[in-house]
């Protein structure tokens, strides 16, 4: 049948054209996949920093930004070449279990406790974070927790622990677990006029603050260190170890560190370089 051959050829040509359009996107030019966190992404650091690295090295960096727990999972599975998160105990376990080669400290910033400007729980007077949380618990004001096993969430839990409380287990009505990323949780907190714990980078850039302001900061317990780890090529032979290490080396190099320190959000320094400190 001449007609059906013609239609068949036409559809094959069409399909070939579509695939041809695809090939550039499919072909990985020199590139690495970095599993990182939504907080780092939301702070805008990557958008600012990575083009510099790509220019210096010719390596493209593809960042998958998810919660810390998920990022570690991804790296563990070998679906990423580099892990760049901010929960030290998990990072150290990652290396200890043989999934990562070595943890390099890169930078730190801090967490802040935000809440409604009227501060019904009166936490702005308390200097320490655990005390602030305790005040919130006492006054039974709404607290929005990420509840997603992220670095921020783990930090939050450690603070409750320090305060001797466990609202999650108690199932308190004022403790709302959103199970979401930082931004989504902040949206929820903003809508509910709730207290919540956030990393400073995400907070400064957050566009929907509503009535919320920073009410507690500066406690050393709110320290938020970031570490970068190469996924172990011994465990996952396909990992782009050379390029991944090049990225890590760049991050901790004087140039990388300088750029990190220079990153500003709304005029404020967002991250403080850490390389050269004890890993």
């Amino acid at each position: 049948m001449s007609t059906s051959i013609r239609t068949r050829t036409r559809s094959l040509v069409g399909l070939a054209a579509l695939i041809a359009v695809w090939i550039p996107t499919l072909c990985a030019a020199e590139s690495i996949t970095v599993a990182s966190t939504t907080s780092t992404e939301n702070s805008g650091l990557f958008e600012y920093l990575l083009p510099e690295f790509t220019e210096d090295s010719g390596i493209e960096v593809r960042v998958v930004a998810v919660g810390t727990g998920q990022a570690i999972r991804i790296a563990r599975n070998g679906d990423a070449d580099v892990l760049f998160v901010h929960h030290r105990p998990s990072e150290e376990a990652f290396v200890a279990e043989g999934y990562g080669v070595r943890r390099y400290p890169v930078m730190h910033n801090d967490f802040v406790i935000v809440g409604p400007a009227s501060d019904p729980a009166g936490i702005s007077d308390t200097g320490d974070a655990a005390g602030a949380l305790a005040a919130i618990a006492r006054s039974r004001n709404i607290f929005a927790s990420r509840g997603d096993d992220s670095g921020t969430h783990k930090k939050e839990r450690s603070l409750w622990q320090a305060a001797g409380l466990d609202p999650a287990a108690a199932g308190d009505a004022w403790y709302r677990e959103t199970g979401s990323g930082m931004g989504a949780t902040l949206n929820t907190a903003s809508a509910m006029d709730a207290y919540t714990l956030s990393d400073r980078g995400t907070w400064i850039r957050f566009g929907n603050k509503g009535d919320l302001v920073i009410l507690s900061e500066g406690d050393p317990a709110l320290f938020n260190p970031y570490g970068v780890i190469l996924v172990n090529p011994g465990r996952h032979p396909h990992v782009r170890a050379e390029q991944g290490q090049a990225f890590i080396d760049w991050l901790v190099s004087p140039r990388g560190q300088r750029l990190i320190a220079a990153y500003r959000i709304d005029g404020e320094q967002a991250f403080f370089p850490d390389a050269g400190t004890r890993p």
Partner: peptide, 25 residues
């Protein structure tokens, strides 16, 4: 993975901007 310039599409961008609080965008 919502990777910039690689796998970021309209819907994932909307999700991302929402999470950044950029609701109007």
């Amino acid at each position: 993975g919502n990777i910039l310039h690689s796998t970021r599409v309209m819907t994932t961008t909307i999700a991302l901007e929402t999470s950044k609080g950029n609701l109007a965008l």
